[in-house]
Amino acid sequence: MDKLPGQILFKHKTIKNPCSFTGIGLHSGKPVTVKLLAAKKGQGIVFIRTDITAVAQKIKVCPQNIQKAPLGSCLRNKAGISIKTLEHFMAVLFSLGISNLLVEIDGPEMPILKGDAYSYLVLLKEAGLREQETEASLTPLVLAENINLSDGYGQLTYFPASKLSITYTVNYENSLIGNQQYHYEHTLANFETEISRARTFCFYQDVEKMQQAGLALGGSLDNALVVYEDRYSSPLCYPEEPVRHKILDLIGDLYLLGRPLLGQIKASKSNHALNGALVQKLAENNQTTGSASR
């Protein structure tokens, strides 16, 4: 099937200059250092666990490596080596169009920085972008059919389209958030102004329970928005910051495809596990039925 009318073809990109930064893992609470390096065209996005000396220290971004994990995205290679909490970083790579990158990291979890994507966006803009000359453009994935997934609580529906858009709905008992819906049309400019500053959020009554389970050990008021019964821990960056952050997470999870995705997505109360299942279903259907991107 030919590409959809108006479908955009992407050029391969990497970074111009190496970039290093340090931070704290949101769930591990441990310090981590990351070094970003340019990759060759066609190499893809590869995480390299420098704290592991085994040959299998490389973890490539691809649907086959998606692994379920609590409260975050996770990739794991065939040797069982994993990297977690990728979603904010991956959302920025998607938005900047970075398709080839080496990510050296000395721990199992990307740093949370300020709990948003804007922190990563600033770092990568400072590193600069470089288009990579190649005869083949980076073809986005567009399926010819709808996909609908549900886990009994959340729901995701994919519709073919020539651009990426997301309509997301959340519904919480907490009256501060309650029902929120936001429609987002994906461009770099829209991502930076509408989505990138939306922070990770949690409910105050859940903090102790998460930490007892070994999660959110690196969480603080510097990197998360805490939702109390009657107030937020700090002023909101956007009127609908919680639902916008859910869109941010979904954008990052979608780039675990390892290539851009075009389509219209309707999401309701989704989570990282369901997002990952959609990515794997998209890849599976692309291989078995053919698509507008092939």
Rank of each mutant, 00 (worst) to 15 (best):
D249V: 03
A117D: 06
T288H: 14
E229G: 15
P63G: 08
E131M: 15
A69T: 05
G263I: 03
T288G: 10
G97H: 04
Q57E: 11
I81R: 09
C19T: 06
G29V: 04
L256R: 01
G42L: 02
G72Q: 00
Y184T: 07
I81T: 11
L221M: 14
G290P: 06
R49N: 09
P5D: 06
K3A: 15
T193H: 14
L75Y: 05
L36F: 15
L236H: 07
L121Y: 09
V226A: 10
K84F: 07
Y172G: 04
I81Q: 14
L26Q: 01
K163F: 08
P235C: 13
K68S: 13
L188D: 05
I105Y: 01
N271P: 06
Y184A: 01
V279Q: 00
G44A: 11
V46N: 02
R199D: 05
E194Y: 10
A292N: 10
E145Y: 12
N65F: 08
R130D: 12
Q155Y: 13
E229N: 11
K16M: 14
S162A: 13
G80S: 12
L274D: 00
A38I: 06
P31F: 11
R294D: 15
E240S: 13
C19V: 12
A91C: 13
A267N: 04
L86C: 03
L86Q: 00
T288D: 13
N285R: 15
N17F: 08
H27E: 09
F94W: 15
E192P: 05
D222R: 12
L188S: 13
L278N: 02
P63M: 06
A144E: 12
K125F: 09
S233I: 10
T157L: 11
K3E: 11
L261M: 14
S196W: 02
N223C: 11
G263S: 09
I251Q: 02
V55S: 14
H183R: 12
P31E: 09
E104A: 08
L71A: 04
E241P: 08
L143P: 00
C19A: 12
G44Y: 03
L9R: 03
D230N: 13
Y184R: 03
G290F: 10
L274T: 02
I177C: 09
F201T: 05
